[in-house]
Amino acid sequence: MEPMLATPAARTGALPHGPQWAFEVKWDGVRALADTTSGRLRLWSRGGRETTPAYPELAGLADLPDTVLDGEIVLLADGRPSFAALAERMHVRDARRAAALARARPVTYLVFDVLRTDGVDVVGRPYDERRALLAGLALPDRVELSPVYDDGDELWAVTAAHGLEGVVAKRRSSPYRAGHRSSDWVKAAHQHHRTALVVGWREETSGNGRLGAVLLGARDGDGRLRYLGRAGSGLTGAVATTLRTALDRAPADAAPFDDDVPPVDARGTRWCAPVVVVDTRYLNRTPTGRLRQPVIRGVRTDADPDPWEQP
């Protein structure tokens, strides 16, 4: 089963109002469905990939029989979810390494919906009823219920003050529309985020061989690869190491873009097949669709690249 997706707000902070809406924090982590319908716990990413081995500290979810939960896996740093800290965890499949990381920096699964509980499918029930069912579950260690609020404007201000990602508004009467992006859920973020394809990379100008910048792209509705711009921020530490390893495995002889790449960006670039997905944060987009001030936050193996959309 695929998760339900939210529609972006028309503009920053433009959340719906009225008693028919509930509001939740938009957590900066990775989406996961927790599924025990097979008799054991399986964690599924938004893109349908199994991620169970990466998070052994969530094994207690297996005690919830024949259940499917929806939530966000987060890793707290200084009291706030840190995607950069989580990036090291999401790719791990070796059991011993996953266990060591779980002991050192355990994740938390923040649950915000239930699709099935104790063998009963509840996706057709209203949001408020599903939340009541969720509140009645005995959640294990490292699993918490994501709070619900009545005042979206107040929550928007609080999330901004505490450096959180944003707010999601959910229509209280709405069913769970698995696999659909619905206007019954509306998301508003304080900063823009997207997943993108890496299509080329450049070394630092110092000649030390370290990763200095990457060229990003996205496919439009016709399958053409469009240019999103060049990003040089965020390419440090484990992020740079993981990304460079992935790019070295996918070289290409020429630029795969269907757009023209500015000569200043193409100069000195090593091209690669558009198979590596990264998470980016950016200020906004130019009229031609380029990302302004993009920052690379980590490699994503749990999510597909976002499609090109006209700004």
Rank of each mutant, 00 (worst) to 15 (best):
M1F: 12
P3H: 01
M4A: 01
T7K: 08
P8L: 09
A10T: 13
A10K: 11
T12P: 10
H17P: 08
G18E: 05
G18F: 10
P19W: 13
F23A: 04
W27N: 03
W27A: 08
R31I: 05
D35I: 07
D35M: 03
R40N: 13
L41Q: 15
S45Y: 00
G47E: 02
G48W: 11
T52Q: 03
T52C: 13
P56R: 06
E57A: 04
L58F: 13
L61K: 07
L61R: 03
A62G: 08
T67R: 00
T67M: 05
V68I: 09
E72A: 06
I73M: 12
L76C: 09
A77E: 09
D78A: 11
P81N: 03
S82Y: 00
V92E: 09
A95S: 15
R96S: 11
R96C: 08
A100Q: 12
A100S: 15
L101H: 04
P106R: 06
Y109G: 02
D113H: 01
V114M: 03
T117L: 15
G119W: 10
D121I: 15
Y127T: 14
D128V: 13
R130H: 10
R131E: 02
A135K: 11
L139H: 00
L139Y: 00
V148Q: 08
D150F: 06
D151N: 15
G152D: 08
G152M: 11
W156R: 05
W156M: 04
V158S: 09
V158C: 08
V158F: 11
T159Y: 07
V168W: 02
A169T: 02
K170G: 04
Y176S: 04
R181A: 00
S183I: 08
D184R: 04
K187C: 06
A189E: 14
Q191A: 12
H192P: 15
H193Q: 13
R194M: 14
G200F: 00
R202Q: 08
T205G: 14
T205C: 11
T205W: 11
N208C: 15
A218P: 06
D222A: 08
G223E: 04
R224G: 09
R226Y: 11
R226Q: 15
R230A: 14
A231V: 10
A238Y: 04
A238I: 14
A240E: 01
A246P: 05
D248R: 13
A252S: 05
A254Q: 14
F257Y: 07
D259P: 02
P262W: 03
G268W: 02
T269C: 07
W271G: 01
P274N: 02
V277Y: 02
V278W: 02
T286D: 07
P287T: 09
Q293C: 11
V295E: 15
I296M: 03
T301I: 12
E309Y: 15
